[in-house]
Design a protein around this nucleic acid. Structure first.
Lengths: 245, 245
DNA sequence: CGGAGCGTTGAGCAACGTCAAAAGACGTGG
DNA sequence: CCACGTCTTTTGACGTTGCTCAACGCTCCG
């Protein structure tokens, strides 16, 4: 099964930070693929994990809840080519839960496989470390976004990030993305109420820059969307984008 | 100078995640101490860095600004015993600036020193990786805080984090902390206007849980402060606190 | 003495949250 | 097939939070 899995994996998106040789080293170590349905919990806050996951298809989210409350806040999205839970390799226990937002397929790699390959290939270890720190950079951006931007800019910025990361993962910009989440999910990501998200979506639609409906995100005017969201890609550390700072 | 520097360094705070042996390995590699004044920029967004820093005294902050704007948002605080810019080791260029919020002393370690020691000591490398991921966990918490909590809870949560991390770095809980920042700095950390911060500070004072004045944070009622801020320490991954999840 | 930066307070307003209601989408069981 | 419940979206009315603008006092420092 391992070789079969390896053959089906493509080094898309952020995996572009690995050299071909590094990918050839890493890919065979994934020992299976697992599918999840929208809403499935992939790993629960506090669980001890002995494996990490690579997003192959679909969208996976990290979710943090304050102690008492039932509802929490999405703090990151992972698109195809992103590791999720690679944090779990050094941390062992995660402070957040991981859920599938859409139908999602992930590849599983055991921590002892990772351990072995990283002992031998220090450069690969460093790239993996790098990838977890890009996540940290994105977290910083989310903190900034939800602190500094008003509702409309917030949602526009969120959509711009999604557009940029997904188009990169898919190899080209799309006019339409499947983003099978509810408006309530969006509200948990952007730190606002579902009702207000609904109104902001209407405003964005009437502004003619994008439409979100039935889990479809349609980009009508990308540059306008980015301008409204004050969006800049530098913090994403996209492969081949070394000049952005 | 190196050995002199090493002798003056103590493995306080989060450095408790290193074993004694690991600290003995790492400490001699810091080649100098540098002092900063409040407001000094320690490293600028986009600079290529060939060294990383360890906070020895004072408080250092990470700052993110959206593309067009002049004012930005603080996205993290580092207290004594925290690495700052260790992210720069894998990332090379940082998406954010680092500034001294107070008088601060940092120890400098060259990336090639780090590289060499990590090549030899894979366990140490992993602890350093771990420490950067604790930063990521804290970023997630900041994103959650500024998304889910109302103004008073936000500030209370912020103060609770500061109290917890500083008391850990200092070895015991204090009644008074020096936090030589302006209300405007607080507003940049909590995603609100300085005016509103001012009012919230008054409310917290009148509530009898804490006083912030002239850069002094006085904790009157720690448990009340934490309750108002819905604060829980798990996300900080404090050494010796493995049971929290 | 004058200016600059910070803290404090008030008045008014815009943004956003809360509550409530209703309609559409969807699956389930009868 | 229909009836029903549940979830989501949408809209309206209303209340509150938090922002804007403005003024003034304070302290520090030249």
């Amino acid at each position: 099964m391992a070789s079969d899995t390896a053959q089906r994996l493509k080094p898309t998106g952020m995996l572009g930070h690995l050299s071909d040789a590094q990918w050839q080293t890493l890919a065979p170590l994934f020992d299976r693929l697992v599918d999840y349905k929208p809403g499935d919990t992939i790993s629960e806050r506090g669980e001890a994990l002995h494996y990490s996951l690579l997003t192959v298809e679909g969208i996976v989210a990290r979710h943090v809840a304050p102690p008492g409350t039932s509802r929490g806040s999405f703090v990151a999205l992972q698109v195809p080519g992103d590791f999720v839970d690679l944090h779990a390799f050094p941390l062992k226990r995660l402070d957040h839960s991981v859920v599938a937002l859409t139908h999602a397929r992930v590849a599983v790699i055991q921590h002892d496989s990772l351990q072995k390959v990283m002992d031998k290939d220090i450069e690969l270890a460093r790239v993996l470390w790098f990838l977890t720190l890009v996540d940290a950079s994105i977290h910083r951006h989310w903190a900034m976004r939800n602190s500094m931007l008003r509702a409309m800019a917030r949602v526009a910025n969120f959509f711009s990030e999604f557009d940029t990361r997904m188009s990169f993962a898919l190899g080209q910009e799309q006019e339409l993305y499947r983003l099978e989440v509810t408006q309530t999910d969006l509200s948990d990501a952007c730190g606002m109420t579902p009702i207000h998200v609904n109104r902001v979506l209407r405003d964005l639609r009437e502004d003619g820059c994008c439409t979100f409906r039935n889990g479809d995100l349609i980009i009508h005017d990308r540059s306008r969307l980015r301008r409204i969201g004050q969006f800049d890609t530098a913090y994403l550390y996209l492969p081949g984008d070394e000049t952005t700072f």
